[in-house]
Write a protein that binds this DNA or RNA. Structure first.
Length: 275
DNA sequence: GTGCTTGTTGGCCA
DNA sequence: GTGGCCAACAAGCA
């Protein structure tokens, strides 16, 4: 499920419940696949008794900083989510990591286990975190950088290129379709075939979709929506893309769904042409 | 049973 | 070495 804004929503949910709080207990199944490459025993030792100091999101990654130079990295994969339950919550089958504070149980659940838990000890954040590409809403995400990247990936369909985290961190399947729909670019167009005006539109709409998605899904400031996707307006492609029989909210034309770059892709033939 | 699924990675091949 | 494609990972849902 989670892309840029959903990840921020989940981070905020844990943060609001537990920032400044001490972790009284850590419950986990060390054999769960989400711990691959991590050391669950060391994680449990370090977090038990530690305070949650701060947290951040970058791309689809989350990083929670605890006292004692302990860092918890989370990636939600395809089916992960974070919840806040009562302190006496009993973990069920897919609840792989639970951090218990005085008042809450912070739960990381992931049925498919494509997600990942990373643990790091040190004064500085881990290398995998600092190497994440500059955010789309940062100054480093320029139209020139996009243009250069598209030239290097000239033969790949633009839809596949938008999913590359090294240049479009946080963009996932629905955001990529939303960006292309707004920029009026057919998802099957080779990246190298885009005209300068189209590259500019792609850059602009990438930023717009990130900004709108964050405000709508994760909420502004301290506000946190009751649940995911409750506020998404019908003017977005998002609300029409899944169900069969969906129509383009701008042209009324029936939407098309095909596999592009190995992912189901939805577009409006009314506004997205091959040339 | 069949055929999907908002993600990432490693192997293969040109 | 680089770029592009594809299967695999695993479990739930219609």
């Amino acid at each position: 499920m989670p892309e840029l804004a959903e990840v921020e929503f989940f981070r905020k949910r844990w943060h609001q419940a537990a920032a400044g709080q001490r972790i009284a207990a850590v419950r986990l199944h060390p054999k769960a696949k989400i711990f691959r490459g991590a050391n669950p025993a060391a994680l449990r030792r370090a977090l038990t008794g530690a305070k949650l100091l701060s947290s951040a999101t970058a791309a689809k990654q989350m990083l929670f900083r605890f006292g004692g130079d302990a860092w918890l990295g989370l990636h939600l994969g395809m089916s992960g989510d974070l919840r806040v339950e009562s302190v006496d919550y009993e973990p069920t089958r897919h609840d792989h990591l639970v951090l218990v504070t005085k008042q809450h149980a912070l739960v990381f659940a992931d049925p498919r286990m494509f997600g990942r838990v990373q643990f790091h000890k040190g004064a500085r954040p881990p290398a995998w975190w600092t190497k994440i590409a500059p955010a789309i809403l940062s100054r480093d995400f320029t139209a020139e950088a996009v243009s250069t990247f598209l030239r290097r990936r000239a033969r790949a369909p633009i839809k596949a290129v938008l999913l590359m985290q090294e240049r479009f961190p946080g963009v996932g399947n629905w955001m990529a379709d939303e960006i292309l729909w707004r920029a009026a670019i057919h998802p099957r167009r080779p990246a190298g075939s885009l005209l300068p005006a189209e590259i500019k539109a792609l850059w602009r709409e990438s930023r717009r979709v990130c900004r709108l998605a964050l405000a709508t899904i994760a909420g502004r400031g301290d506000e946190l929506p009751r649940d995911l996707n409750v506020n998404i307006p019908d003017t977005w492609l998002f609300n029409h893309r899944w169900a069969g029989g969906g129509r383009c909210p701008r042209t009324g034309v029936p939407l098309v769904r095909e596999e592009i770059g190995g992912r189901t892709t939805c577009w409006s033939p009314g506004r997205q042409k091959m040339r």
